[in-house]
Protein backbone atom coordinates (compact mmCIF):
# COMPACT_ATOMS: atom_id res chain seq x y z
CA UNK A 1 0.00 0.00 0.00
CA UNK A 2 1.65 3.24 -1.11
CA UNK A 3 1.49 6.36 0.99
CA UNK A 4 -0.46 8.41 -1.49
CA UNK A 5 -2.96 5.64 -1.98
CA UNK A 6 -3.42 5.39 1.74
CA UNK A 7 -3.88 9.12 2.00
CA UNK A 8 -6.56 9.34 -0.65
CA UNK A 9 -8.37 6.43 0.92
CA UNK A 10 -8.39 8.32 4.20
CA UNK A 11 -9.64 11.44 2.53
CA UNK A 12 -12.31 9.45 0.77
CA UNK A 13 -13.51 7.93 4.03
CA UNK A 14 -13.51 11.35 5.62
CA UNK A 15 -15.60 12.73 2.78
CA UNK A 16 -18.05 9.85 3.03
CA UNK A 17 -18.22 10.30 6.80
CA UNK A 18 -18.95 13.98 6.44
CA UNK A 19 -21.59 13.33 3.82
CA UNK A 20 -23.32 10.54 5.72
CA UNK A 21 -23.10 12.50 8.95
CA UNK A 22 -24.60 15.56 7.27
CA UNK A 23 -27.46 13.55 5.77
CA UNK A 24 -28.29 11.89 9.09
CA UNK A 25 -27.87 15.14 10.95
CA UNK A 26 -30.28 16.83 8.58
CA UNK A 27 -32.83 13.99 8.54
CA UNK A 28 -32.90 13.93 12.33
CA UNK A 29 -31.96 17.51 13.14
CA UNK A 30 -34.50 19.36 11.03
CA UNK A 31 -37.50 17.35 12.30
CA UNK A 32 -36.19 17.63 15.86
CA UNK A 33 -35.98 21.41 15.55
CA UNK A 34 -39.50 21.51 14.10
CA UNK A 35 -40.70 19.18 16.84
CA UNK A 36 -39.34 21.39 19.59
CA UNK A 37 -40.67 24.69 18.28
CA UNK A 38 -43.93 23.23 16.98
CA UNK A 39 -46.20 24.67 19.72
CA UNK A 40 -44.77 28.12 19.02
CA UNK A 41 -45.68 27.87 15.36
CA UNK A 42 -49.17 26.46 15.68
CA UNK A 43 -51.06 29.34 17.26
CA UNK A 44 -54.71 28.77 18.05
CA UNK A 45 -57.04 31.47 16.80
CA UNK A 46 -60.09 32.45 18.77
CA UNK A 47 -62.94 34.43 17.30
CA UNK A 48 -66.11 34.15 19.32
CA UNK A 49 -68.92 36.27 20.69
CA UNK A 50 -69.19 36.05 24.47
CA UNK A 51 -72.45 37.00 26.16
CA UNK A 52 -71.96 39.43 29.03
CA UNK A 53 -75.59 39.75 30.09
CA UNK A 54 -78.40 42.35 30.07
CA UNK A 55 -77.07 45.83 29.49
CA UNK A 56 -79.51 47.19 32.07
CA UNK A 57 -77.60 45.41 34.82
CA UNK A 58 -74.88 47.99 34.46
CA UNK A 59 -75.07 51.47 35.92
CA UNK A 60 -73.97 54.30 33.68
CA UNK A 61 -70.61 55.75 34.64
CA UNK A 62 -69.76 52.97 37.02
CA UNK A 63 -67.20 50.43 35.64
CA UNK A 64 -68.20 46.91 36.68
CA UNK A 65 -66.13 43.76 36.48
CA UNK A 66 -67.48 40.76 34.60
CA UNK A 67 -65.59 37.44 34.65
CA UNK A 68 -65.93 34.48 32.33
CA UNK A 69 -63.94 31.41 31.40
CA UNK A 70 -63.03 29.77 28.12
CA UNK A 71 -61.74 26.23 27.65
CA UNK A 72 -58.89 25.66 25.24
CA UNK A 73 -57.01 22.54 24.31
CA UNK A 74 -53.30 22.87 24.99
CA UNK A 75 -51.55 19.71 23.86
CA UNK A 76 -53.01 16.88 25.87
CA UNK A 77 -55.03 18.89 28.32
CA UNK A 78 -57.90 21.28 28.46
CA UNK A 79 -56.87 24.60 29.94
CA UNK A 80 -59.56 26.82 31.39
CA UNK A 81 -58.54 30.45 31.06
CA UNK A 82 -60.42 33.03 33.01
CA UNK A 83 -60.99 36.50 31.61
CA UNK A 84 -62.02 39.68 33.33
CA UNK A 85 -63.55 42.64 31.55
CA UNK A 86 -64.76 45.99 32.80
CA UNK A 87 -68.07 47.09 31.38
CA UNK A 88 -68.16 50.87 31.22
CA UNK A 89 -71.61 52.09 30.32
CA UNK A 90 -72.25 55.61 29.16
CA UNK A 91 -75.71 57.04 28.53
CA UNK A 92 -78.18 54.91 26.58
CA UNK A 93 -76.82 51.95 24.71
CA UNK A 94 -73.32 53.37 24.42
CA UNK A 95 -70.99 50.97 26.18
CA UNK A 96 -67.32 50.24 26.28
CA UNK A 97 -65.84 46.93 27.38
CA UNK A 98 -62.20 46.91 28.51
CA UNK A 99 -59.91 44.02 29.26
CA UNK A 100 -58.64 44.06 32.84
CA UNK A 101 -55.19 42.91 31.73
CA UNK A 102 -52.64 45.69 32.12
CA UNK A 103 -51.03 46.47 28.78
CA UNK A 104 -47.63 46.57 30.44
CA UNK A 105 -47.09 42.97 31.58
CA UNK A 106 -50.56 41.51 31.87
CA UNK A 107 -51.25 41.91 35.60
CA UNK A 108 -54.95 42.38 36.38
CA UNK A 109 -56.05 45.92 37.05
CA UNK A 110 -58.84 46.85 39.48
CA UNK A 111 -61.19 49.79 39.46
CA UNK A 112 -60.71 52.11 42.43
CA UNK A 113 -63.76 54.26 42.85
CA UNK A 114 -62.05 56.71 45.23
CA UNK A 115 -59.16 57.32 42.83
CA UNK A 116 -61.45 57.27 39.81
CA UNK A 117 -58.87 55.02 38.08
CA UNK A 118 -57.93 51.44 37.34
CA UNK A 119 -54.74 50.58 39.23
CA UNK A 120 -52.30 47.84 38.48
CA UNK A 121 -50.84 46.00 41.49
CA UNK A 122 -47.54 45.22 39.74
CA UNK A 123 -45.89 48.47 38.70
CA UNK A 124 -48.35 51.08 39.95
CA UNK A 125 -49.79 51.89 36.56
CA UNK A 126 -53.02 53.88 36.52
CA UNK A 127 -55.64 54.02 33.79
CA UNK A 128 -58.57 56.40 33.47
CA UNK A 129 -62.22 55.37 33.28
CA UNK A 130 -62.10 54.78 29.50
CA UNK A 131 -58.82 52.94 29.69
CA UNK A 132 -56.43 55.77 28.86
CA UNK A 133 -53.03 55.73 30.58
CA UNK A 134 -52.80 58.18 33.48
CA UNK A 135 -49.41 57.27 34.87
CA UNK A 136 -46.87 54.48 35.01
CA UNK A 137 -45.08 52.30 32.43
CA UNK A 138 -47.90 50.89 30.19
CA UNK A 139 -47.27 51.45 26.47
CA UNK A 140 -50.94 51.94 25.53
CA UNK A 141 -54.47 52.22 26.86
CA UNK A 142 -56.38 49.19 28.15
CA UNK A 143 -57.54 46.97 25.27
CA UNK A 144 -61.18 47.30 24.31
CA UNK A 145 -63.51 44.73 22.78
CA UNK A 146 -65.89 45.05 19.89
CA UNK A 147 -69.38 45.11 21.42
CA UNK A 148 -72.86 44.20 20.26
CA UNK A 149 -76.23 44.75 21.94
CA UNK A 150 -79.09 42.53 20.81
CA UNK A 151 -82.47 42.63 22.58
CA UNK A 152 -80.81 44.43 25.44
CA UNK A 153 -78.16 41.74 25.88
CA UNK A 154 -74.54 42.77 25.64
CA UNK A 155 -71.95 40.57 23.89
CA UNK A 156 -68.29 41.10 23.16
CA UNK A 157 -66.14 39.71 20.42
CA UNK A 158 -63.21 37.74 21.76
CA UNK A 159 -60.34 37.77 19.27
CA UNK A 160 -57.06 36.10 20.10
Amino acid sequence: MSGSHNLSRRDFTKAVMTFVGAVMGAVVGIPVAGYLVSPAVKAQKTDAWVTIGPLDDYTAGQPALFSFTRAKVNGWEKTVNSYGVYVVRAEGDAVKVLSNACTHLGCRVTWQQDQNAYTCPCHDARFGRDGEVLSGPPPRALDGYETRVENGTLSIRLLE
Binding site: R9, R10, T13, V16, V20, M24, V27
Partner: peptide
Protein backbone atom coordinates in the same frame (compact mmCIF):
# COMPACT_ATOMS: atom_id res chain seq x y z
CA UNK B 1 -9.41 1.05 12.24
CA UNK B 2 -9.48 4.37 10.44
CA UNK B 3 -10.24 4.37 7.57
CA UNK B 4 -10.73 0.71 6.74
CA UNK B 5 -12.94 -0.65 9.51
CA UNK B 6 -14.83 2.52 10.24
CA UNK B 7 -15.80 2.70 6.58
CA UNK B 8 -17.70 -0.57 6.87
CA UNK B 9 -19.27 0.47 10.16
CA UNK B 10 -20.37 3.68 8.55
CA UNK B 11 -22.02 1.98 5.62
CA UNK B 12 -23.89 -0.44 7.88
CA UNK B 13 -24.98 2.35 10.23
CA UNK B 14 -26.24 4.39 7.31
CA UNK B 15 -28.12 1.42 5.87
CA UNK B 16 -29.75 0.86 9.25
CA UNK B 17 -30.60 4.53 9.46
CA UNK B 18 -32.29 4.47 6.07
CA UNK B 19 -34.19 1.33 7.04
CA UNK B 20 -35.37 2.99 10.25
CA UNK B 21 -36.55 6.16 8.57
Amino acid sequence: FFPDTIYKDLIVAFAIFLLLV
